[in-house]
Design a protein around this nucleic acid. Sequence first.
DNA 1: CGCATCCTTGAGGGCCATCAAAATGCGTGG
DNA 2: CCACGCATTTTGATGGCCCTCAAGGATGCG
Lengths: 262, 262
Amino acid sequence: MNNAIEAELRRFPNTGRFLEGRLRSAMSEEERQRLEDMASIVERHDHGDRLISRGSRCDQSTMLVEGFMLRTLESDGKRFVVSFHVPGDFVDLHCFALKRLDHNIDCIGPCKVASVPHDEIIRTMREAPHLAHLFWFSTLLDAAMHREWILKLEQLKTPRRIAHVFAEIWRRLEMVGLGYPDGFETPLRQSDVAEMCGATPIHTNRAISELRRLGIADFHRGRVTVRDRAALERYADFSPDYLYGEGGLQVREGELSADGRP
Amino acid sequence: MNNAIEAELRRFPNTGRFLEGRLRSAMSEEERQRLEDMASIVERHDHGDRLISRGSRCDQSTMLVEGFMLRTLESDGKRFVVSFHVPGDFVDLHCFALKRLDHNIDCIGPCKVASVPHDEIIRTMREAPHLAHLFWFSTLLDAAMHREWILKLEQLKTPRRIAHVFAEIWRRLEMVGLGYPDGFETPLRQSDVAEMCGATPIHTNRAISELRRLGIADFHRGRVTVRDRAALERYADFSPDYLYGEGGLQVREGELSADGRP
DNA sequence: CGCATCCTTGAGGGCCATCAAAATGCGTGG
DNA sequence: CCACGCATTTTGATGGCCCTCAAGGATGCG
């Protein structure tokens, strides 16, 4: 793992990955410390646990420290995945403003989380508006990713959708220091990938075989291996802009700085 | 149109529809006035105008006063619609935190908009955190709608997708006082609906015929007519919860009140 | 009336769902 | 070490949804 991120995690073990690869560099020392102090209540969950259910009233939000989570909606007795989360994501910050979530948050594999009471976020809005601005930014990142998923579902057939999902997971893991040069590991199963792509597990399996046959990507027991990253991203029509990391849409340091930051 | 909304529009002509049907009741007089004062620069646009292009730096956001807009992404030379806007929507508030939008905002039919400089929003965060909280809420409404679209694309075939789009537009227009008892009017063409559903115009045309044949809805030259609303919503598997109006997920008055509101 | 735009209809083929069944890998206990 | 049960992955066959190419109507405007 990246040395800078390791150093950050020694000082901020629960929140050191928050906005890493995006606007973390815009956070002051005080802000990093303030966030870490807010997120001191740590819990562990197992595979399949539902962290939050649609409609339940919530008065705290969750920072994902270790593990994978899915945002899901249920309809007709079936589960549909609308997005996923990696360590460093402020998973259900949405429910701070929405009060009741419209969706569920499900754990995939073992997860470690840190809880942040909403009272603390309200205090942040009053006392540290720049940090609050970054929180807002992080929820809008989710919205931007949702939009890309909508595009992907409207535009691509299943094999390319899967390639897109792989490309996105890989980039996001990499931004928080969890990718490998030739791929990544994830507790996702093929049926989870199917739920992310709006396809059946059977068709997803055939599509994954197709990716293997084409030399685009191999997915075997939670390990995705890619020989040629450019080929994967070209095949998936993937451009990482919408993740707001380095690149075209990136928010430059200082562009958020007018709002009350010392 | 609803009398209460008419009265609101007389006092706040540019912003009187903001959060109407959702949390507008939680806005104080001062907050309503403050927002109206912020949104004093009015402009008009024509059908087909692109209000904002992906990637352009922006330092103001736009309140849609009259008309329809689409959020679009372009890929492969084709346009894809990821969401739409009705009067009262704070259309590109996202770009306040993102600085560069990942998508375009396109006008459908003639539009009237009011601009809000970002400096004013920053001041709001410092001076009126409760109002800022409502702004944040309104951007998360967009995210919730995005999630519902993802679900819809993963779950439904084209005829039901179209029915879902119709049901959503109708409800949203109704919340801001622009629906009719038996349907609604919109400048959308069939090809726009196609772009919203990830289908070709030809297939969309056949699907609309199907809805007509089933007696679910009629769409003729921008007029959607529905005889049996319950039947439409049942057919589309539509539940309005995710719009956060009255109902299961609704944020009750006072639930946001802890944050610095007088 | 001519033209542009939008809507409608037809035919052929590819993607994907569904039903059914088999193979593979993994942990447990004998 | 092997046998067994379970979850997951893989394969096959059939039919429906939807894309593409092509062409024909309708509507409104100058």
